[in-house]
Design a binder for these strands. Structure first.
Lengths: 106, 106
DNA sequence: ACATCAATTAGACGGTTATCGAAATGTCAA
DNA sequence: TTGACATTTCGATAACCGTCTAATTGATGT
């Protein structure tokens, strides 16, 4: 999923512009306060141990958090790297940048 | 409503940063395909005669369009200038710019 | 005054979504 | 193996939201 984006990041290639449908998916994903806060926190930490850390800040159940994370992942904004019991989240800064540019281009 | 923004535009002042609540309101407003398309169209035309023009493009009833316009106005993204029977819409480009910057600042 | 037209409001309906508790899955350590 | 722990999935519930039709408001021209 969203393979091109990951490859482009590794190879320092220029990202293709976001499709309108991808832009819409991201906007929908950002239209919830908890999800926006997750993105904000991920953007501040270079690495963020997942739910464990996030659940200390957000007043939601583990189930709800898991739901939001899946939404963000589906929208392409974060990647979830599972390691044993835990899950590490990272903001996809290249996708985020492409998203901002697609809004600037209007 | 959003008086400071309008004044700042006229006087070429620097806009204050968006409050988190304003940013959230704008994100919510943009999370609907029709509203995003309205913003897109407004950004292309320097002046856009309201519902008359928009309804030719959007497959929605007048009532639904009116609802969406009110949402965009409440979020601060557009201003509606009523002249007799008609309503003229304009994108608040200063608010839009402030919104983009508040996302870049993350 | 009246008819017409643009836009808004009111009210209802159906689909979507955020949320939870409970159960399931999977991992690690003793 | 067994138990504890992190995360996900399931099923249900309540609130929200986009949409419509019908009725209303307000302005214009005859």
């Amino acid at each position: 999923m969203a393979v091109k984006v990951a490859k482009a990041k590794e190879k320092h290639e220029k990202l293709p512009a976001l499709l309108p449908s991808q832009r819409m998916a991201i906007l929908k994903a950002l239209s919830d306060p908890r999800r926006l806060e997750i993105i904000e926190r991920l953007s501040q930490c270079p690495r963020c141990t997942a739910c464990s850390d996030l659940r200390e800040c957000l007043p939601i159940s583990a189930a709800t958090l898991s739901h939001h994370l899946k939404e963000l992942e589906t929208a392409g904004l974060i990647s979830i790297e599972r390691q044993g019991k835990f899950a590490n989240l990272t903001l996809r800064r290249d996708v985020w940048q492409a998203f901002l540019e697609s809004l600037q281009r209007l």
